[in-house]
Design a protein around this nucleic acid. Structure first.
Lengths: 211, 211
DNA sequence: TGGAACATACCGACTGGTCGGTACCCGAGG
DNA sequence: CCTCGGGTACCGACCAGTCGGTATGTTCCA
């Protein structure tokens, strides 16, 4: 592990390795990708890879760190703007869709291989995700309390739904598809907000108590 | 591959193997699970496993087949009832959540390891999923055309959202959690239907065109 | 007695990681 | 100016271990 002290640039070689690794992991899965394939795709040698990364797993950690770091930064930025709830929700959704879309491979790898993290790392990543989740939920919940959002559904569920689609996005999103990420994010936000503003009454098709 | 001609019962041994495989694959991932571990967990020998299954991949295929088979059967059953759109959507969502919840391990494995399927199998599974997706979308779209559902969001997107949460479910659903599957399904259906019945106007927080 | 249902020993291919080297850069001393 | 020294960035042949799969029994029921 030769992590530079300064948080600045990664070396050219380091970047090539990461990029190749992400591409291959996304295409074939982590275990099915050999270190040899990574070094060949990156056009470096095994020695170079192990000079920069402590292990194959280390590559995964770095991928996760960079993705999660970007997402959390975006969330903090948006919340700091202190906009009204609806706009905040919209901003969060759109921003998350855009980050995810611009890093589909990273997101896909993350989604599929997260469970490989060892206990410590896993705990720290869970904490981050939890913070994201809670922050998001707080926005919805406060708006429900103040009466600006309906309570058709618990804030918890609304957040689970919003984040659910987005996590799933790497499985069907194609960069060359007809809809831009911003457009997609907009539509998802529309949907979520439409559900959240629905007035209190019985939802359509409601046929009884939830058992 | 010793698949019996009749579609009837699987032998006791076969079931033990499948059950053990699902459990281990869900817990540790497919590649990280060795055949040896599977046979030990199932309390059979390697010979027995390879007597019934052609390869390790075969285990995966069987897991997928059984899960997808059940889901498609449910969908067909519901559509055949020919209920009104809202009830149909509710039924689909609830049924899918229940199937998924009662087979969390299978669903988790499927979600994570689907990409391992070879081209042929992959194509056939994609076709099934597509059929599911299209059937669902048709229900929503027809209701939009007849004016019973709003058009805040394209039917396509609504379906993507509904199925997205459910596919994501294995990552956070815990059988011992506070909410029953039926309850969860109900809430998700409420949410989706709330969004779908929203009247046409500008959704809350809408600030301009989607770029 | 034939064959289905297992059991067991073993193979060969492959993989992550290592380790002894090398090439080059940079500051210091002469 | 040269050159020495040592540190960083890389190279690539090699190893020890592992894993999916198979070959060859053995058991037992019809």
């Amino acid at each position: 592990m030769a992590r530079r002290a300064g948080v600045g640039e990664l070396s050219r070689t380091e970047n090539r390795i990461m990029a190749a690794a992400v591409r291959l992991f996304a295409a074939k899965g982590f275990d099915a990708t050999t270190v040899q394939e990574v070094v060949e795709a990156a056009e470096v040698t095994k020695g170079a890879l192990y000079h920069y990364f402590g292990s194959k797993d280390d590559l995964l950690y770095e991928i996760y760190r960079s993705l999660i770091g970007r997402q959390m930064a975006e969330l903090d930025r948006i919340v700091a703007l202190d906009l009204d709830p609806a706009t905040t929700v919209r901003e969060i959704v759109v921003s998350l869709v855009e980050t995810t879309a611009s890093s589909v491979d990273e997101a896909a790898v993350f989604m599929r291989e997260m469970h490989r993290l060892d206990a410590d790392l896993m705990a720290s990543f869970r904490a981050e995700r939890r913070r994201y989740h809670e922050t998001f939920r707080a926005v919805v919940e406060q708006a429900q309390v103040s009466g600006r959002f309906s309570r058709v559904v618990p804030a918890e569920t609304a957040v689970l739904i919003a984040l659910g689609v987005i996590n799933q996005l790497p499985t069907w999103y194609r960069p060359d598809g007809p809809k831009s990420p911003a457009r997609l994010g907009g539509e998802i936000a529309d949907f979520v907000l439409a559900a959240l503003r629905a007035t209190g009454g019985r939802p359509l098709g409601f046929t009884g108590e939830h058992p």
